Simulated scan of single mutants.
Amino acid sequence: MRAAVVASGGQYEIAEVADPSPGPGELLVRVTACGFCGSDLKARAAMPVGTIMGHEFGGEVVGLGPDTEGWLAGTQVAVLPALSCGQCEWCASGHVIHCAKVRLVGLGGTGGGFAELAVVTAAAAFPLTPRIDPVHSALVEPFAVGLHTARTGRIEAGDDVLVVGAGTVGLTTIAWARARGARRITAVDPAASRRSAAESFGATDVLTTVEETQASGYDVVAECAGKAGLLDAFVTAVRPRGRIVLAGVTIDATSFQSWAALMKEVSIGFAVYYTPEEFRTVIAAFTSGLIDPAPLLAKRVELGQVNEAFDDLAQVAASGKILVQP
Rank of each mutant, 00 (worst) to 15 (best):
E277G: 11
Q305Y: 03
E278V: 04
T236R: 15
A175C: 00
L207Q: 05
E212Q: 14
P295R: 00
I185V: 07
F201W: 02
R243E: 13
S267K: 11
R180F: 15
V301D: 08
T250E: 06
A233Q: 15
I291D: 03
T236V: 10
E277Y: 10
G242R: 07
A285Q: 03
T208H: 11
S200K: 13
R195D: 05
P240S: 09
E199S: 11
E199F: 08
P190Y: 08
A182Q: 03
D312S: 10
F286W: 07
D292T: 09
P293W: 01
R184M: 08
A179F: 02
A225G: 02
A233W: 11
A198V: 06
S216Q: 15
A314I: 06
A228C: 03
K264W: 01
S288W: 11
S255V: 12
I251L: 13
E212C: 07
I251F: 12
V245S: 05
A187K: 07
F234T: 07
A222H: 00
F286R: 05
S196N: 14
A203C: 05
P276F: 01
C224D: 05
A233H: 14
G181C: 04
T281Y: 03
I174Q: 03
A309W: 01
D252P: 10
I268T: 06
A237W: 07
A314P: 02
A182H: 06
S267G: 11
R241L: 15
R178G: 02
E308A: 12
E308I: 06
A233V: 11
F286A: 07
E278P: 05
T186I: 12
A177S: 04
E199W: 06
D312H: 10
V238Y: 02
E302T: 14
T250K: 07
Y273K: 08
